[in-house]
Structure formats: structure tokens, C-alpha cells
Amino acid sequence: MTIRSVLQAMIHPHTATDGLGAPPAPAVGVRHTLGGSLQLRHVDAGSCNGCELEIASAFGPVYDAERFGARLVASPRHADALVVTGPVTKNMVGPLKKTFEAMPEPRMVFAVGDCARDCGVFKGGYGVAGAVADVVPVDVQVAGCPPHPEAIIRALRSLTGR
């Protein structure tokens, strides 16, 4: 790696999300585009950590979700939307509800991954209480097991409008 290539990467970085075009239209039922600013709180409700890897990847240097105005935050009080992964296990029903109620209005919920949408391969498991929509109202769903970072970013952009 030469100094020149490092400088070039700084001045004109390339990411996998270059040239994606206009943001997708907001999903049906979404009330706000939040003026290009979206703070997310992530809750793992019982995931296998596959979706976590993809979310981390979406915010890494390759996909760089932050350029669209989305950011992961440390507290539900700071968040506009909850990112929930995994089927909701019995032990996580309470914490998930509490986290949702701790968010100030307007608040939204992303269900990321097949498990969050319909329990996926864990359907009928003895520790599973249900899908995310059975516990908190879901606004946007992202399909995939695990979902591709591009799919996650498409969902985020439908809310940031960028």
C-alpha cells in the first residue's frame, strides 16, 4: 500500500454502496422520514448472531450506512427506531417491550432477518415466544437468513430518505 493509494482512498473512498441511486420509497404505514437523521437501537431478542454480523457489516467501511444519516446509539431514549433480530425468546419478551416503551415518539421498529419476521428455523422451539410482531408493532421488515447488508441499508434508507 503506497502513500498515494492511502491518500487517494481518503480523498475519494469507494464503498459497495456507491451509485445506489435514489432512496427507496418509505414502506407502507411509515409516518416519518425524520429529516435525514435516524438513530437506531439494536436489540438481540434471541438471534443466532448471523444478523448481528450483517448489521455490523452494514455499518463498517464496506457498506457505510452512516453516510445515509443512520447511526447506532447506546440508549433507547436516543433512538428513533428499534432494530430487532432473532425470534423473541420467552426471556426477552419483557426487555423488548420495555425497550420499545423507553423510546420517545415517533418510534418505529425494524424486524431484521427471517427469524424476526416469522421465527425462521426456530419456529415452534420450546423457548420461543413468537415473532417480533407478536410483541411490538413492526414497521419495516428485512428478509433473509441472514439478510444481505444491502437489504438492511435499503430498509434504513427508506426511513432516512437519503
Binding site: 482512498a9 481518503m10 429529516g35 437523521s37 457505510d64 452512516e66 453516510r67
Partner: peptide, 20 residues
């Protein structure tokens, strides 16, 4: 962000965050 190889949020992002 640039030094980490990312594009990063636009410079006016904190203003957008505050407005929201």
C-alpha cells in the same frame, strides 16, 4: 470517517440530528 476509509455522514448531519 475518511481516515478510516469510509465516506461518513455529511458535515451537516449534527444539524439534522438536532432539528429532529
Amino acid at each position: 470517517s475518511r481516515l478510516e476509509g469510509r465516506i461518513g455522514p455529511p458535515v451537516r448531519q449534527p444539524l439534522l440530528d438536532l432539528r429532529k
